[in-house]
Write a protein that binds this DNA or RNA. Structure first.
Lengths: 208, 208
DNA sequence: GAGCATACCAAGCAAATGCTTGGTAGGGTG
DNA sequence: CACCCTACCAAGCATTTGCTTGGTATGCTC
């Protein structure tokens, strides 16, 4: 038990704070933010609930820290894609792939975002969630519109509806995708991109 | 106040029990099952929380009644589609349309199912949720496999992945669809079917 | 008008929950 | 050794939550 109370002087591993955040993220993802008690988190960490308040101000500040860190990483990748000189189809594919990679690397964070962003967003403290949501919409809409303009995507697409279709389809996969099973996130991204772009029907059998 | 405590002898309108269930469904859909308190429901109904227990055994029995009624209606429609003599593509389209119609007519029930089925399913009382989930999977997989067999759908489809793609894409729409706005549920179903079957790319521009 | 059913109130209880307070143990540093 | 920092415990408080209990008002029915 002495190891648990010993700080990490070498700085090699994650700090105790980061360890606790990872544990909290898992709990939040599994049960939702409001349904996770500070005692749940503390139990999972092997300490008492009161001890969490040595590291964090509140339960809210824990999710806050979790979400902000994740979003900064994700949107950094989106920005890089937008700034690249590739054609619209390649950029769209890249954005889908980056998203599935995020599900693979940060499943808890994505799940929290999917399940609790709506509820958390109603508090002033989490107003940035709405901003990030708008930013995400901007990324996808930009890519879709560029695709239509350059003749890569069908001109009769409802851009907003298509945006929702892509967004929902990609992120909702966090509900069933589990790393390390038969299909890798790259496999899934491949097939999703294929369905999204070309549909599931046999080519040339399109109805009018 | 006397009207509220007067039963409906004609049998024309919904019973008080049904009224309260509708109010509960809305609350559950908005805030989730566990995050909705019996006082929330009672407040929305204009009564005290204890009075709810004149009508229902528990908070759980309320969701139970809500979910069972909804599922019976939905799966009755799926069964009718499966039993019809239409071709695979028509049946697949019909199933998608019926699902969007369910979102339109019973948004609260669908939302509860989407958000809380996982959590509720861990209790023995709600074991039927897993059964219904399996039943739903069976419906879609049957339709997809028939489509592949009859040459309507691409033979290289991963059936399971395609099933998840369709299921997620359809039901997650409950998150943003609001009845009575610009797009009707029929409009949305049309476009979703089109994207699903033929993709968003311009025909003949398929890569690979 | 006596009996009964429906719909509700008023009050409260036991458990759970977020958070606080005061204290302890152990290691590093001067 | 004195001092301080990190990490934690022990105990508990105020509030919230699901649910219970005993009672009241209203209208229907015979």
């Amino acid at each position: 038990m002495s190891a648990a109370s010993t700080p990490d002087p070498t700085g090699a591993g994650p700090s105790r704070r980061e360890q606790l955040l990872a544990i909290a993220a898992q709990q939040f993802a599994e049960k939702g933010f409001r349904n996770t008690t500070v005692r749940d988190i503390a139990d999972a960490a092997g300490i008492l609930s009161g001890s969490l308040y040595h590291h964090f101000d509140s339960k809210e500040s824990m999710v806050d820290e979790i979400l902000v860190a994740f979003q900064e990483e994700l949107f950094g990748q989106y920005d890089a894609i937008l700034a690249s000189g590739d054609d619209a189809r390649s950029k769209l594919e890249a954005a889908v792939r980056v998203s599935f990679e995020a599900i693979d690397k940060h499943p808890h964070e994505v799940a929290i975002f999917q399940n609790d962003a709506n509820h958390l967003g109603s508090f002033e403290r989490f107003g940035y969630l709405a901003d990030r949501n708008a930013q995400s919409r901007q990324v996808w809409v930009t890519l879709i519109e560029e695709g239509v303009r350059t003749g890569v995507l069908r001109a009769d697409l409802d851009v907003t509806l298509t945006y929702r279709f892509i967004r929902d389809t990609v992120w909702v996969a966090v509900r069933w995708y589990r790393p390390g099973r038969d299909l890798t996130h790259t496999d899934i991204a491949d097939q999703y991109v294929r369905i999204l772009l070309d549909g599931i029907a046999v080519e040339g059998k399109n109805h009018g």
